[in-house]
């Protein structure tokens, strides 16, 4: 399958890029292209032009100050994995980056592309030929969703690996567009809608330029657990990021649990803190948290495993992830 026709622009500055995005026809930003090129081959998108961010130097690289770590949108996942600073201070970020796709993809895939990744569904992420054997579903331009049978509704699943980790660390992102620059909490970037999962896909004509995370206190422990069918080259069926802070006696002071693969956006389970706060991480208590969190996720059959099975898996990985972050394992 060849790529459709499009024009290709490679601006050398952000100003030029923003101007370009806002001229007439609808285009798409291309970062590494590991996801977009496949989507174009499958005719899931038909942009009039691609806007490459390759030649804009300010979007590259990892910077740190006393308080913050900033990653340019074009930082590759390989660069993240190689960074000893990230490995030491943000181990869950390092781990999640290592779990994306395969080395062949991580050498070109970017953090910006991972944050902006479209949601996925077994009826949508298929060739044009495959899709034509069915009525087109809502996300593909039709009316009815094949998963939920609802009209004008899409439940496709957000399954990027890195955003849950960034959310657990409290990340903010910088967006630049026709109205200038804005910095928002990463959680506000996501719409929770399957068809247009983030602000940019919903049409804001912006470019994500940078993601920034505060350096956590030394006591904060974090990890990321991913479940998938193959150990490599596979999206998460479910993934969970944990950031856990203990007091000097090892009792829980604060905890964040953020999921991917369970709905149309990243999902934070907000009751872990109240259930664990002030307690030591005893296996039984952690199992209760896992049980309750698994009860609050509502996966649909947008991938190859059943929602029920996914919930069972959730219980196991949530427990293991919390125990590991808490030093219990």
């Amino acid at each position: 399958m060849h790529l459709p026709e499009f024009n290709y622009y490679e601006p050398h500055s952000l100003d030029e890029a923003v101007e370009c995005l806002n001229e007439g026809q609808r285009g798409a930003v291309v970062a590494g292209g590991t996801d977009l090129v496949v989507a174009l081959k499958q005719r899931l998108q038909k942009p009039g032009f691609l806007l490459s961010l390759d030649k804009i130097p300010s979007l590259k690289g990892i910077k740190s100050s006393n308080e913050f770590l900033s990653l340019g949108a074009m930082t590759t996942l390989e660069e993240i994995i190689k960074s000893s600073l990230i490995k030491e201070r943000f181990p869950a970020l390092s781990k999640a980056a290592r779990e994306v796709g395969s080395p062949l993809l991580r050498n070109i895939a970017t953090i910006g592309g991972n944050i902006c990744l479209n949601s996925r569904c077994r009826f949508y992420n298929q060739s044009a030929f495959w899709r034509s054997a069915n009525d087109l579903c809502y996300k593909a331009g039709g009316i009815t969703c094949h998963v939920t049978k609802r009209k004008n509704y899409c439940a496709s699943t957000f399954c990027a690996d890195i955003p849950p980790v960034l959310l657990a660390y409290g990340a903010v992102v910088k967006l630049v567009g026709p109205q200038g620059e804005r910095t928002i909490m990463l959680k506000d970037f996501y719409t929770g809608e399957g068809r247009f999962p983030n602000e940019i896909m919903a049409g804001s004509r912006e470019i994500l330029t940078e993601v920034t995370i505060p350096f956590p206190p030394a006591e904060l422990k974090s990890t990321y657990y991913k479940f998938r069918l193959r150990d490599s080259i596979d999206f998460p069926l479910i993934g969970v990021a944990v950031a856990f802070e203990a007091d000097e006696k090892g009792r829980c002071k604060g905890i964040r649990l953020v999921f991917t693969g369970v709905g149309s956006g990243p999902f934070e389970f907000r009751h872990a803190g109240e259930m664990l706060s002030g307690s030591e991480l005893k296996e039984e208590l952690v199992a209760q948290v896992a049980e309750r969190a698994a009860g609050e996720i509502h996966p649909l059959k947008t991938d190859l495993i059943s929602p029920r099975y996914k919930r069972e898996v959730a219980k196991v990985i949530i427990k293991e992830a919390i125990m590991e972050a808490g030093g219990g394992r």
Partner: peptide
């Protein structure tokens, strides 16, 4: 596969292995 999944199209780009089916030639 022509969609980034199999590695049959691997080349070294500045010494690093990448899937050339998912890389635009202009890049």
């Amino acid at each position: 596969c022509n969609q980034g999944e199999c590695g049959a199209c691997t080349v070294l780009l500045d010494g690093k292995p990448v899937s050339s089916c998912s890389l635009l030639a202009v890049k």
